[in-house]
Structure formats: structure tokens, C-alpha cells
């Protein structure tokens, strides 16, 4: 029973992080929220007795993907509201 409650808690946390990532206008926070999703997903894989997949998810999902998104934000725009038009974004990217 405790296991099921833990699972549901983690899944609820995942959904919460996903909603936060969509709603948040500051893209850096959104990317970190997606990293949190991957982290919890990795914990879930481990609880479901798939340690191999958990390792992959932890390395790829949490570290590599998040960092690559952060680098992308660093080279483009951080705030979603600032640029409404496609041309604005193009000019920001240079």
C-alpha cells in the first residue's frame, strides 16, 4: 500500500512539474522543470525494477538534454513574453 501511495505521489509530482513547465514564461525554469520530470521518471523506473532504464534516463534525460536546452536558451531568448513575432526571435538569434 505504501508503495502504491509513493508511486501516485511521484506521478502527481511529475504531472505538476509538467504543468509548471508549460505555464512558466521564464524558459530556464521551464527547462529545469522538465529535468525534474526526468529525475522523477528515473526514480519511478527504479521502483518498477528497471534499473538499466533508470540509469539511462538519469544520464540522458536529467543531464544531457537539460544542459543542451539550457545552452539553447543561453544563445536565444530567455523570456517567452518578450518576443511575440517570429521576426523578433530571428533578430534575437542573430
Amino acid at each position: 500500500m505504501a508503495f502504491v501511495i509513493l508511486m501516485f505521489f511521484l506521478i502527481a509530482l511529475m504531472i505538476g512539474a509538467a504543468i509548471y513547465a508549460i505555464v512558466q514564461k521564464d524558459l530556464l525554469y521551464a527547462v529545469i522543470a522538465t529535468g525534474v520530470i526526468s529525475l522523477i521518471l528515473s526514480a519511478l523506473f527504479f521502483l518498477l525494477q528497471a534499473p538499466d532504464v533508470a540509469l539511462t534516463e538519469a544520464a540522458i534525460g536529467v543531464a544531457l538534454t537539460t544542459i543542451i536546452f539550457i545552452i539553447t536558451i543561453r544563445n536565444t531568448v530567455r523570456n517567452e513574453d518578450k518576443f511575440k513575432d517570429k521576426d523578433d526571435i530571428k533578430s534575437a538569434v542573430k
Binding site: 534499473p51 538499466d52 533508470a54 540509469l55 539511462t56 544520464a59 540522458i60 543531464a63 544531457l64 544542459i67
Partner: peptide
């Protein structure tokens, strides 16, 4: 033990990523 080529390779790549950052 759990893990293997893909996982180990990805972990090593994160190490290099840390150094590059």
C-alpha cells in the same frame, strides 16, 4: 550489475560535458 554500454557511455559524456561547461 544494472547498466551497460549505453548507460556507461552516457555517464562518461556527462563528465566531459561538465568539463566543457
Amino acid at each position: 550489475s544494472p547498466g551497460g554500454g549505453f548507460q556507461g557511455g552516457a555517464i562518461i559524456a556527462t563528465g566531459f560535458l561538465l568539463m566543457l561547461l
